[in-house]
Amino acid sequence: MKESRALPIAVALAILLLLWYAAAVALNWTQANGDLLATMSLAKPLLPAPHQIAVEFWNSTAGQRIDSKRSLIFHAAVTASSMLAGFALGVAIGLLLAILLVHVRVLDRALLPWIVASQTVPILALAPMIVVVFGAAGLTGLVPKAVISAYLSFFPVVIGVAKGLRAPDRLQLDLLHTYDAGRRRVFTVLRWPSAMRFLFPSLKVAIAAATVGAIVAELPTGAESGLGARLLAGSYYGQTLQIWAALAMASLLAASGVGAVVLLERLVIRARGGRL
C-alpha cells in the first residue's frame, strides 16, 4: 500500500513553521519591548521569523550581482566547487579501495579494521591541520578544502560498496563458477550490479558529508568567500539574518546534492524495472 506523503509532509511543515513563529515571538519579546509586530521585524533578532530569513535570502541572491561579495550565490558557488571536487575525489578513492578490499584478501584483513576504526574518529577535527599542512606545501584555496571533503566522503563509499560487492550469495557465485567466469566477468555481471543497492545510500551520506566538510574547511583558513566564511563573518558582527540566510543556502546546497543522487538512483531503478 502506497499512501501519498505530500499532505502529511505539508502538515508537518506547517506545524514546524508555527512553532518557529511562536519561538521567534518568545525569544525576541524583550528586545522588541513587548511589541508583537516588532518581534518579527528586528534588524538583529535573537531568532528571526521565517519570512525575515526568506526576505534576506531573496535580497542576497536575486538582489545582488552574482560576482558581488555580498551575493550568496557567489559564496555558494565557492563552497559548491570544493564540495563537488572533494566528493568526486572521495568517491573515486572509495570505489577503488572497495574493489581492492573485496579482491585482495590480505588487504581486507589488514586494512578493514582500520577503516572501520577510522570511522569512529572525527575526521573534521583534522580540517585545520590539513589546511595548514597544505598551506606549508604551497597549496591553498580549492585543494585543501576539496581534500577535506574527499576525506569525509570516501569512508561511507568504501564501507557501503565493499559490502555491496560481497552481497552476491553462494548460489549466484556458484552459478557463474559453472560458467567458468573469470574475476573480471564476475565483477561486471554480478558484483557491481549487486552493489547498486548499497552504493546509493553511501553516496547520499558522502555528498552530505562533503558539504559539511567544504563549509568547515573554510573556517580555519580565514577565507573571505564561501558559506562557512559567511557564517563566521555573520557571527563576528552579530548579523543573525546573514547567518540564517547562509544556513538556508548551505541546506539548499546539501539538499540539492542529495537530490541529485536520488535522481540518479531513480534512473537506475527505472532501468531495472522498479527495484534496486
Binding site: E3, R5, L7, P8, I9, A10, V11, A12, L13, L16, L46, K204, V205, A208, T211, V212, I215, V216, L227, G228, L231, L232, G234, S235, G238, T240, I243, W244, A246, L247, A250, S251, A254, A255, V258
Partner: peptide, 26 residues
C-alpha cells in the same frame, strides 16, 4: 504525523547542522 515528520527529519540529518554553532553562541 509519522509520514510527515520522518522524511523531514531524514532530510534534516543530511543538512550541515553544525552551521548553527554561531547562533548557539548568541
Amino acid at each position: 504525523l509519522r509520514r510527515g515528520f520522518v522524511p523531514l527529519a531524514s532530510l534534516a540529518g543530511a543538512l550541515p547542522i553544525v552551521g548553527i554553532a554561531p547562533i548557539a553562541v548568541m
